[in-house]
Design a protein around this nucleic acid. Sequence first.
DNA 1: ATTTTTCTGGTCATCTTGACCATAATGGCA
DNA 2: TGCCATTATGGTCAAGATGACCAGAAAAAT
Lengths: 252, 252
Amino acid sequence: MTHSAPPAVPRFPVSVTVDLVIFTVRDDALHVLLVERGKQPFLGGSALPGGYVRPDEGLDEAALRELREETGLDGNRLHLEQLRSYGTPGRDPRGRVITVAYLALGPDLPVPVAGTDAAHAFWAPVEDALGAGFGLSFDHATILADAVERARSKLEYTTVATSFCREPFTVSDLRHVYEVIWGISLDPSNFRRKVTKTAGFLEPTGERRTAEAGRPAALYRFGGAEVMYPPLLRSGDIARKARGTGSEPGGG
Amino acid sequence: MTHSAPPAVPRFPVSVTVDLVIFTVRDDALHVLLVERGKQPFLGGSALPGGYVRPDEGLDEAALRELREETGLDGNRLHLEQLRSYGTPGRDPRGRVITVAYLALGPDLPVPVAGTDAAHAFWAPVEDALGAGFGLSFDHATILADAVERARSKLEYTTVATSFCREPFTVSDLRHVYEVIWGISLDPSNFRRKVTKTAGFLEPTGERRTAEAGRPAALYRFGGAEVMYPPLLRSGDIARKARGTGSEPGGG
DNA sequence: ATTTTTCTGGTCATCTTGACCATAATGGCA
DNA sequence: TGCCATTATGGTCAAGATGACCAGAAAAAT
């Protein structure tokens, strides 16, 4: 019979790592946690935090461990999900390395703890990190770009935006997260109507908070719902923005 | 200094595989391509097709190769996307194996070609394959379940449903895909309004097709658009169905 | 010719959204 | 104290999308 032979070498030297894309919203920009590499390759360059998966741990487990090691923070309080895997030959000059990328979302964290593996960790605006001059190591620019798109998309139909807010938070805090990550401004009134009417999204604490200026805002906790239905779509605004910005008036 | 040592063994015996979840719509059910295992472990059991990633190929590349080997079909004409990775220790009794799962969608394919690695490949209804009595090998039941959810979700906001239809196809053909994968029935008139008014979804050929019964249906080609905006949400129907089906009348 | 079947287009009430206006509640400042 | 800037919150209104439903069109079967 025409039985084609199986691959001659099913097993060959390969390493498996996890890389973390840890996002937070600082000031008015989305930030990602990067580390300055202390060894070759890309010595002195910037990269996503990550490390080798150990022989006895699962992928999620390894991601949680790295998260703890790099940030000193309890991973259970952050949103953590697998992003996707990257394994192009040559992506790591040391040999064949498959990496499983994870996406972590959290409130503005205290500056990464020194005295650990994260000694040279720092927050960088995503916009800068993706810039041509920055030059992230390995294929981390690709991973970061994929992570941004995932985060933007997830804000639409889930409630993960609350992961960026320390509780209790105001509707404005939450809206700020959307505005920063989507890069557009949202109508305060319409946004409020949407999130407060979505069952399980926000849970009022009854308290209020007085900011620097303006009327005090009601405080909320996360309500426990994971999905938002109907979704809060950014596509509409984007489409409108595209039409409005278009240099061709009334195209066919 | 409190400098925790790096992992003692960054590299250990590990294999990387790709597994394929190949879906098609046959008759009135979603089907998945499975293979009967010809060797240990799980000899004689059913599993998702897949194989080892070779030293010199990327992950997508490996998935395309396996797809070609298992189905004899040109992968470029199918929709193929990475699903996610699975690497729990012990998921493969032979050792540490990380698998990258891919999702493939295609029209009702000619029965898998014999005389290749796919000699023992067969189509199985997804419902059966996920049943307790079926007992998919490894953690393939988990992978399959994740793939089903991904497919259901993607029908909502993309045009991938057309991947299941051989061109040219009718609106009813397309609706049938949605109904089978979502497991609900859709109003023909409303569905037509939706898909025909979404720019770039359908492109009329001008031809018609006369089926066994009823008025001839207009034929279409895929229009090239990848996303559908606004999305066609199943959640609404599901929520309504849940309310209607609920055994607790008028719950809080 | 009539029935059956499916395709196709239309109506209508309802829901959601975006744009916009108005008022409330605070601090800052003259 | 009394106004003003600022933010929060609530409401209106028109446009758009959706679900339920009706009705005619076009074929095969009887």
